[in-house]
Design a protein around this nucleic acid. Structure first.
Lengths: 167, 167
DNA sequence: AAAGTTATCTGCATGCATGCAGATACTGCG
DNA sequence: CGCAGTATCTGCATGCATGCAGATAACTTT
């Protein structure tokens, strides 16, 4: 039965929470040597298992050229690797390097430890509820991310540096 | 009574949650036209109320020169403004522009809406618990951020472009 | 009031992600 | 087999955040 004052408070609390988590993510990414595009791409190929270069381009919203360089960086950093598509030798399949995810786990370590301390003060039932929230919130955040990205980026359509059919 | 299997599951769930939230933050920042340093700086001055240019430099880990440009960008984007320090006319005090925070609220809107849907499915008591978590987790994430930043950045000490006293 | 110290700003250079356009390699259809 | 379409890569150019070092202004001490 939240009173209006509580509602405003909840608003602020959530705002600060988002800010803090986002900042932590940013710091982790920086520590891992990952920029926005790289993190996004790595998250994509990790969740999908693997993606072709072109698919990665359209999902990230980058041109195919920029995506090639993006894959170069991910590969050089050891987070991903190129593989050949047996059915179509033009295509390049990008997949995450398993060990690399452990390296990311390292940079996320501080956050995990600090949060573990917080979680330790709750009962098992309460923890279960929190993890239930985490489980449901993750897709919600991903949906929000997509919404933001599609709203922001020009809907005109990506230049994909395709062979110019005109002429 | 979490079984080992559950523990591993919790690990993964939390990992995905962090990834999703971080990505959302990244997308929001991009939509707001804020880069890492800018977001961090804006978060700092918002929480502190105001900060001098030099303090901002040391807190962000940037040189004073880079901080000047950082403030330029924040000011031009309308997120912050410069104010004079009445006690020391050399100093520049940076403070957030109140209205600007509303603009950030906009880009965070999608996340807030999606999460609101999730939260709506819990009881008041459960929501209270979740917000209790948010309240405690925010400082924990900030601590983790500091830990990551200080661990990563070279501990040698920042070049602050100060008058080189040494010779 | 002169000298030294401190706070911020500015010019220059660098590194880097990205877009664009052409190049290359491969597929599939006729 | 040849040709059109497709997937990825590469060279060039651009924009931008940052570091570095000097410049400027203001405070502090004696």
């Amino acid at each position: 039965m939240t009173t209006p004052a509580d509602a405003a408070d909840e608003h602020l609390v959530f705002r600060e929470y988002l800010d803090a988590v986002g900042l932590q993510g940013l710091a982790s990414a920086e520590a891992a040597g990952l920029h926005t595009s790289e993190w996004y791409a790595l998250s994509l190929i990790t969740r999908e298992g693997s993606l072709s270069s072109g698919e990665l381009a359209s999902r990230t919203g980058l041109t195919t050229g920029a995506t090639t360089r993006l894959i170069d960086r991910l590969e050089q950093a050891g987070y991903a690797r190129r593989a050949a598509d047996p059915n179509d030798r033009r295509r390049v399949i990008v997949e995450p390097v398993p060990d690399a995810l452990d390296r990311i786990e390292e940079v996320v370590g501080p956050a995990r430890r600090h949060i573990a301390e917080i979680l330790a003060r709750y009962t098992s039932e309460q923890r279960a509820l929190l993890f239930d929230y985490f489980r449901h919130a993750a897709p919600a955040f991903r949906a929000a991310t997509e919404e933001i990205r599609t709203t922001t980026s020009s809907p005109g359509g990506k230049k994909t540096t395709r062979a110019r059919s005109s002429r």
